[in-house]
Design a protein around this nucleic acid. Structure first.
Lengths: 332, 332
DNA sequence: CTGTTAGCGCTTTCAT
DNA sequence: ATGAAAGCGCTAACAG
């Protein structure tokens, strides 16, 4: 592998001149530039990124720490981040934290030690305090799907309350009054916020909120099914169920089928996220769209703008959910 | 950020000694080791990975180039690779090639220039020749989901012919004789191989293969639906359809519903891959399991063994598909 | 506009 | 067992 020395020798110019054309500096005469380029081609020269990183203290890479690498949500997120970064000549170092505190911290150290210029974080086990402290460090970062008031400009998140509101409102407008709710873990910020919106819609419609219509799941498919069965076993009365994500909704629909219930005739369903597979379900699932791609793109642009000084765009930190009507809700 | 110099100064030993304890070399006295460790702790020293990479010419990172970052197949693959690598103290630099030749080549250069110690490749636009040439280069790599005889030891792939055979055989055993087939692009290796297995099963059962029962799709959901509609429009007669992946199967099932057909009573379906969402479908999809996780794990272990000299395991290059019976096939 | 000269932080001979 | 010193390949003042 040819080095910058060989290029400089072959071109008959100094190291710095080679470096200058490499980095597109101004103040290089056309002639020397030509000579350098010619030498580079002849030697099939490839700059050593590691050496550049060391010398310039900039790795041109941004670290991405997500809960998982699989699943529709993270798949969409990673895809968008990688695309935007690549378009900007940067690249992603991706790792997973598995919603476990120690694992997330390891992932963080890992990326920081790896000299990432910036980080994109989707973490849920690490505490607010830890992140606030981290923000005093030298590696800038953004946080996805989470709001921390002390560092709110670095946070990109959904208006979850509105999402919860929209789902309930839609059902109410379709004539439903007895609405069950299969939530995520109530300790999680997004779950709590969505529930607030849910209750708000009920209140506006003068429907009282009933504790026995709620089931706390864990965002996994099976807990949707469990939730539905538990609701039935407790003799809860409802004509529709809202789930905190699409996976649980698919599980709940399976639960309904276990009980020979017709969907949506005997029970309506609404999910959350608008994952790609909701269109495959039968009936197709009405859900709340989570603009993951927009959020991922915006957070990447923030880094391009603030860390690499590339773009100049208007930054939005909060994103708006939207109802996607399909076939899983009955109009009464 | 403390450097190795400061540690050496504080500990009162030389640079090399610090480096030695850092790298767990033998021949370091307990005493100096203790002093060094103490100094590191006091300074909260973090070795600079970039500098280490430059000096040692080893980045401890393996590049991963996949077609896409989203989707059930790649999600599972990336998850497994990252996990195995991390367990071994290595890490992944992930990028996407989007099944486009130029894009794939760029991704390759990118990873190589980034000094990855090895590569894991899932590419389909780059030619065999290019990869064979690449294998002469200095960066070792493995290839997923593809067989190239000249470098077969670096290839990890599914027994696609068997997969195609198993699907057809199952339908035949259930009494089906008129079997439609929605394939991927026939130029692709896996598609072609599966078709061979399909025909073999037909032949064994003395069923003649009919060209009009085949439709060439593109692995996307919509083409499954198009395929089904096209089959119907051409007045093809069939009681079951096999699809080259689960996405197309879900699309084809939608097509059947467009025509008010009951599944599986009036038409049976078999998919391929055993993607997570096949369990969500209604009825749940019978499909062929593709052991992506095993394949991803094995290829990572190959690298751990051959590049990092860590493990000592038996390497398998070919993986075996398996029929997963669920509810989408009618026994006649 | 161009060349000289220090580094960037760490590894690795080679002596001792 | 330990230290001195020479790089790894490139960037970035600085001087000219």
């Amino acid at each position: 592998m040819a080095t910058i020395y060989e290029v400089s020798a072959l071109a008959g110019v100094s190291l710095s001149s080679v470096s200058r054309v490499l980095n597109d500096h101004e103040h290089v005469s056309k002639k020397t530039k030509q000579k350098v380029v010619a030498a580079m081609n002849e030697l099939d020269y490839r700059p050593n990124t590691i050496a550049r990183s060391l010398a310039s203290n900039c790795s041109n890479s941004v670290g991405v720490l997500v809960s998982e690498l699989h699943g529709p949500f993270f798949g969409a997120m990673l895809s968008t981040i990688e695309l935007e970064l690549r378009n900007a000549g940067k690249h992603a170092v991706i790792t997973a934290g598995h919603s476990d505190e120690e694992s997330e911290k390891k992932g963080l150290d890992f990326l920081i030690d790896r000299n990432c210029d910036a980080l994109i974080l989707h973490v849920d086990a690490i505490s607010d305090e830890y992140l606030i402290k981290l923000s005093k460090g030298k590696t800038p970062f953004v946080i996805l799907n989470r709001y921390i008031s002390e560092i709110k400009d670095n946070c990109f998140y959904l208006n979850n309350e509105l999402g919860g509101y929209l789902a309930a409102k839609h059902l109410i407008e379709q004539g439903h009054k007895d609405i069950a709710y299969i939530s995520g873990p109530t300790t999680k910020q997004d779950t709590a916020e969505r529930l607030v919106g849910h209750k708000k819609a009920l209140t506006e419609a003068h429907i009282s909120f009933k504790e026995n219509l709620i089931y706390e799941g864990d965002y996994l498919t099976e807990s949707g099914r469990d939730g539905f069965n538990s609701l039935i076993k407790n003799k809860a009365t409802f004509t529709a169920v809202i789930c905190s994500n699409d996976e649980m909704a698919s599980g709940a629909m399976r639960g309904a089928r276990d009980h020979k219930l017709l969907i949506p005739e005997q029970c309506s369903f609404i999910g959350f996220d608008n994952a790609f597979f909701t269109e495959y379900l039968y009936p197709q699932l009405t859900t709340i769209n989570f603009p993951v791609n927009d959020m991922a793109k915006m957070s990447t642009l923030w880094i391009l703008q603030n860390v690499y000084k590339q773009k100049e765009i208007k930054i939005t930190n909060i994103f708006t959910p939207k109802l996607i009507e399909r076939k899983s809700v009955l109009q009464k």
